[in-house]
Design a protein around this nucleic acid. Structure first.
Lengths: 328, 328
DNA sequence: CTGTTAGCGCTTTCAC
DNA sequence: GTGAAAGCGCTAACAG
């Protein structure tokens, strides 16, 4: 077809169609007040020349890039990526694209990525915070931000996350009702809001049943696999281990499973957060609290788009309900 | 600080520093031929004003966006995301960012995303093809493309992938040497080059040991979990099931594991591709062929950058070696 | 070494 | 309904 590059511009189209660039632009942007036949002429020229708009030039003028940034602690993580899937799925429908950045759970890195996104003029940002700090989010100035999965201190923001408290509360309550004697707890880093909330739900359920919280069987780590492994080991090596264990997320569950696979643990029951592909196959798993991961992503995307479109409603935190999956 | 937005431009900086915008631009771009003290004046003005370059404007002028596109079949996939991790990791060091798109293993979708990337003027694209077709990659015209993990027909391209043939060949050979009687085969869609190559490696190993390929125990599916489940089931329900089974990728392995967990299969040995977090915990797993996933991503990124920087070397296909992990 | 100037490709008043 | 013209913020000749 074309011999060299494809530097077909509005100008070329305008000439071909015998109109001005202004008119071409109008047609391209679906401006109503263009006579149908002129519009047609333009369309014809467009396809004849194989014209494709240079979005960079457009962005410079309109100050909109139709691009948003996502910052996630890491990519090798089905939980985060399910959220990203929900986001991309929603955004592609309005022709937005997504710049994906990883923060490696590192504050400085998070800030660097934000700065980059700002320079690239993204229209908005969705962040899965890597910590409980959010002061540095301010560098985005007017650019809308939606937080996902976790809240932070030092930055008031729109956010969408699961109802963590309710999720763990119900699971623990259910087990207690079914006759659980002692429910151990394996928690994530309590500075993360989600970890704290899940713990609070656990405590509240115990309280409702007049059970003491036994500090010996309440352990905290960091949401990662190794942490789950070691805490479960600690728990099982106790003189009198609990008959139930609540595990606060998928990766700890995975680590715990790795430990449990090594020996018999008759009568043990695991309750755990996050319904990811393998969770239900891990040994002794009896209840899984499922978060609506893609839905979180979708809602975050929608909220962000509203902000981008100028919504001035006051900041909101959307809590999505979890569902309890019973396996036995 | 600033009262309104932050529309600080080169012009503002130039005024503040008492130089021309050209000089500011030079300083910003590290042009050597600027007198140190002028440079310093500019730097001072920059930080005083909190100036940050508008990359969109810059891109319009330079025709470089410092952004590449990645197209992957899906995001909820540790294998793909490990590759993406490798890519992002390499690219961040030279301040490139990444637009991530999912193709949902759908040709039309893949093409749409490419078109979008083209309009956004990405400097290059890395594609994990969703099929064995590549004609539509041509719409990227001069934009460099690197394929990853799989090759396609209809498009000659740079690519980086594992040595699939060698990987399965060695694993099967090793098992045979160790006394395996009959090795069943669970394969992916053979139109995908990686699936085909893994099968060929298997065949070659059999041949080297003068074993017949028994069609009854050679089954093909589609690289997904369900497929692995069903094919393993078929295999195990045979009158005389094989004592070894080679499984062509992680997700099929996962599905197979789900099936195997349901009953005893004394003396069974699984050889499988892809060393992902859980693979080694699946029942009966004795050999895992590990692909260097992040390394694939890193090399793909480097190759792409070379192309972006104008390398005219002829198209190359990089084959990275796999490693065999023996578990028993 | 530094400034002047002309755009990059698009949108958008403001006239007509 | 359509065109002329002025930039968006930056870089890159080209002079000096």
């Amino acid at each position: 077809m074309s011999e060299k590059q494809s530097p077909v511009t509005v100008k070329d189209v305008a000439e071909k169609a015998g109109v001005s660039t202004a008119t071409v632009s109008r047609v391209l942007n679906g401006d109503l007040k263009v006579r149908p036949d002129t519009a047609e002429k333009v369309q014809k020229a467009v396809s004849l020349l194989g014209y494709r708009m240079n979005q960079v030039a457009r962005s410079l003028k309109t100050r909109r890039t139709h691009t948003i940034g996502i910052i996630a602690p890491e990519f090798r993580n089905d939980f985060f990526m399910s959220i990203v899937t929900g986001i991309e799925d929603t955004l592609k429908q309005i022709d937005f694209s997504v710049i994906l950045c990883s923060s490696r759970e590192n504050l400085k890195e998070e800030e660097n990525r934000l700065r980059l996104l700002k320079e690239k003029n993204v229209d908005g940002v969705i962040i899965i915070p890597g910590s409980n700090r959010g002061e540095h989010f301010q560098i985005m100035e007017e650019t809308p931000i939606v937080l996902v999965d976790r809240l932070v201190e030092g930055f008031e923001s729109d956010a969408v996350l699961s109802d963590n408290f309710q999720g763990s509360y119900e699971a623990v309550k259910y087990s207690l009702k079914r006759g659980a004697r002692r429910i151990g707890f394996i928690g994530g880093d309590r500075t993360l809001t989600s970890a704290k909330e899940r713990f609070d739900g656990y405590l509240k359920a115990l309280e409702d049943f007049q059970r003491e919280a036994e500090s010996e069987i309440i352990l905290f780590g960091d949401y990662h696999e190794d942490s789950g492994y070691h805490l479960m080991k600690t728990l099982m090596e106790l003189e009198s281990p609990p008959d139930h264990v609540f595990i606060s997320n998928y990766f700890m569950h995975l680590g715990a499973a790795r430990y449990l696979l090594q020996s018999e643990h008759k009568g043990l029951h695991i309750l755990s957060f996050d319904d990811l592909p393998l969770a239900s196959f891990f040994p002794y798993t009896s209840i899984i609290v499922a978060q609506p991961m893609e839905e979180i992503g979708r809602q975050a995307a929608e909220l962000l788009i509203q902000r981008i479109n100028g919504s001035k409603a006051k900041k909101m935190v959307l809590r999505l309900p979890t569902t309890m999956r019973i396996l036995e």
